[in-house]
Amino acid sequence: MTTLPGEVHVVEVPDLAAVKEYLERQQVPVVPGAPADDDRTIGYLDTQVQRVLDAETDLQARACRVAPYTAALAEALCRRVHCALARRNLPLGVDPASETGARPSANDPEVRRMERPFRKVIL
C-alpha cells in the first residue's frame, strides 16, 4: 500500500482472492469447485464470483475516476460484489423474509458514500 499526500491509500484493484476473503468475513460461502451431486452445497462458485467481480469492476470504472485506485474504491467494489450476489438469489428481487415483500436497495448507501469523492461528473 502506498500513501499519497493527504493520506490517500493507493491499493491494487481487488482480485478474486481479495473478494473471496471479503465475502468470507461477511460469512458468505464461496466454494472453489462445482456443487456436490446431492445439491446441498450452499454458496457461490469461483466462476460466479469472478463474473460478478468483472461486471462490477467495469461498472465502477464507468461511474468513478479509478486512478489512483484507493482503499475506499476497493472496499466499495467488494461491497458491490456482495450486494450483487445477495440480490442474485431473490426471485424478482423480492426478499421473502420481509413481511412487506421489500426489495433490497440497488444503491447501497455505503457504496455511494465510499465512491462519492471519485464519481465522474458529466456536465
Rank of each mutant, 00 (worst) to 15 (best):
A74S: 15
V13S: 04
C78L: 06
E7G: 03
D46I: 03
A61W: 03
A76Y: 01
C83E: 07
L16I: 12
G101S: 09
E99Q: 13
D37H: 10
P32M: 12
P32V: 10
P14D: 07
L45D: 03
E12W: 07
G93W: 14
R88I: 02
Y69L: 03
E12L: 09
E115Q: 13
V52S: 01
D54E: 14
Y44V: 06
D46M: 03
Y69D: 00
P5N: 02
Q48M: 11
C64Q: 02
E7M: 08
A36Y: 10
S105V: 08
A97T: 13
I122F: 05
D37M: 07
G93H: 14
F118N: 05
P91V: 14
A84E: 14
V81L: 05
P68W: 13
E7K: 09
V13C: 10
L45I: 00
P5R: 00
S105E: 13
A36M: 14
L92E: 15
R51F: 11
H82R: 04
A102M: 12
Y44S: 06
V28R: 04
V31R: 03
E21P: 00
N89L: 12
R62L: 12
D54K: 13
A36V: 14
K20H: 04
L73I: 04
A97L: 15
H82Q: 05
A34T: 08
P5Y: 03
V11N: 07
A102W: 05
D15K: 09
E12A: 14
T2M: 11
A72D: 06
P32C: 11
R51V: 11
L45C: 12
V10K: 13
V111R: 02
V49W: 02
A84Y: 10
G101L: 05
P117S: 00
R40A: 12
